[in-house]
Design a binder for these strands. Structure first.
Length: 284
DNA sequence: AGATCGCCCCGCCATT
DNA sequence: TGAATGGCGGGGCGAT
């Protein structure tokens, strides 16, 4: 994000794949300036946990001074160049909203299309302030928060930001088959739990009160991935964690991730990651 | 919602 | 011995 890492007191990052969170905190400023060129990373939401920071944002010939108190929120669009001089210590929780997840949240706004965001902007927002505190606790809490929890939290924040800060909606779009948040969460939960007792797609669909065929297409519209494909990706993600965090054999990791044997695991891993698991592990 | 059908995942084997 | 690759049949997944 343009900060010099070794000058930060706290510098955490949490990447769920769909969402990216940061905690960035300085002891005693001044961190002279930051500059990031335009990119297609989507939007950045920053929430200040403390008061006493201000910065001068330079865009073209214009300069604007922004003061941050507790619960101050700023939004900026990564597709614009960003340059700012910073004064005073800061403590931020930040979240990156990918263009895809923004589009998804806008799409879910009862069939209304985007009106765009008013950026850059700074304002007080106690709701996002509380979300930021939850995230800060998630970063520093004793146990790791489950990926599903973090993902749902990201979804909630995205929805909130779009509701509050996206411009007026315009033309309605055609309604598609999609899962409600509750159905999506339930379905994902059941897919992950499938490790023990074999659950079929049929059963998950009926748990969501949907027919099998409708469920599959709605899941796809919602997550841009078929149920079984999604499960495989979750298993591979888990495998990546175990590959770096443990010294278990590939056969053991395969079983731990829901693959019945090593050969099949290696094949699926290669297909998705591009290199076989052993090679990938050595590269980490 | 329910029926049909092709394809790919799975689980097991062998080989290097 | 562990890891990577290939073959193969059954069955469930996913699209229509």
């Amino acid at each position: 994000l343009g900060c010099v890492s070794n000058r930060l007191l706290k510098d955490f990052e949490l990447d769920t794949g769909e969402f990216k969170f940061y905690r960035k905190c300085t002891r005693n400023g001044p961190l002279s300036s930051v500059a990031t060129p335009a990119s297609d990373r989507g939007m950045l939401v920053g929430v200040s946990l403390k008061t006493g920071h201000h910065r001068r944002v330079i865009s073209g010939r214009h300069q604007a001074s922004q003061h941050f108190g507790r619960d101050s929120v700023y939004l900026r669009d990564f597709s614009d160049d960003y340059q700012a001089d910073m004064y005073g210590a800061f403590d931020f929780v930040l979240m990156e909203l990918s263009t895809a997840s923004i589009a998804k949240a806008l799409d879910e706004r009862k069939g209304f299309k985007p009106g765009g965001f008013a950026t850059p902007l700074v304002r007080e927002d106690p709701v996002l302030g509380h979300f930021a505190q939850i995230l800060a606790l998630t970063f520093e809490g004793p146990g790791k928060a489950s990926p599903l929890f973090v993902e749902q939290l990201g979804a909630a924040i995205t929805t909130y930001v779009v509701d509050q800060y996206a411009g007026p909606s315009s033309a309605p779009t055609s309604a598609k088959r999609r899962l409600s948040r509750a159905q999506e969460a339930r379905a994902k939960e059941m897919l992950l739990a499938e490790a023990d007792g074999n659950i079929s797609i049929e059963e998950i669909a009926s748990a969501c009160n949907l027919s099998r065929s409708y469920f599959i297409s709605a899941f796809r519209e919602t997550t841009h991935c078929t149920p079984h494909q999604w499960l495989i990706q979750q298993r591979i993600a888990r495998a990546r964690e175990l590959l770096v965090s443990s010294d278990a054999s590939l056969a053991e990791i395969a079983v731990a991730c829901g693959f019945s044997d090593q050969s099949h695991f290696s094949r699926m891993f290669s297909q998705i990651v591009g290199v076989p698991p052993g090679t990938w592990r050595r590269s980490q």
